[in-house]
Amino acid sequence: MSDLKSRFIELVQSNQGLINSLCKLYSRSSEEMKDYRQDVLLSLWQAYPSFREKSKPSTWMYRVVLNTLISNHRKKNSRIVTEFFSEKMEFPLYHDAGSDDGLQVLQHAIGMLNPMDKAVVILHLEGYVHKEIAELLTLTETNVSTRLGRIKKQLEKSIKSLEHESL
């Protein structure tokens, strides 16, 4: 096996929590999650030669993985738009965050957001500032701020309704 491949495998395995979490939040079933993970691994491999060791590996991964998942979702939705109402398709069906209520609420609430809003909130939770989020997702800073304001309201509503359901 080439040295490049060995280093790539090591990089992926040391960031598997990040990859699995993102694929899970964008998928609706365990099969779809595996498909997405395959696509993500291929995208990472194709982008690997352009990865600068100086930059933070996780930042590079977030850029490649989120853009792959958003693009996959768009392609998939354009194929099934005649069969389903897209609003319904935003809801992921795949929840296996275990018995932890906080994690289930997080997964469900974020899962209800549209693909770009999901990416924005994930990067925000990861501690990136608006400017960095804008660069990673090729958005404007104003757009990121506006989205985050809307996302907060939406998450608040979802979390309240989920907590109400669980009572």
């Binding site: 491949k5 790539f8 495998i9 992926v12 395995q13 598997q16 929590g17 990040l18 990859i19 699995n20 979490s21 899970k24 993970r37 395959q38 691994l41 291929l42 491999w45 965050a97 275990g98 994690l103």
Partner: peptide, 16 residues
């Protein structure tokens, strides 16, 4: 939690 489910070397190689 999601870091606990391994991405095997075989899976990575089959994807790339």
């Amino acid at each position: 939690m999601n870091g606990l489910s391994d991405i095997s070397e075989a899976e990575i190689l089959s994807a790339i």
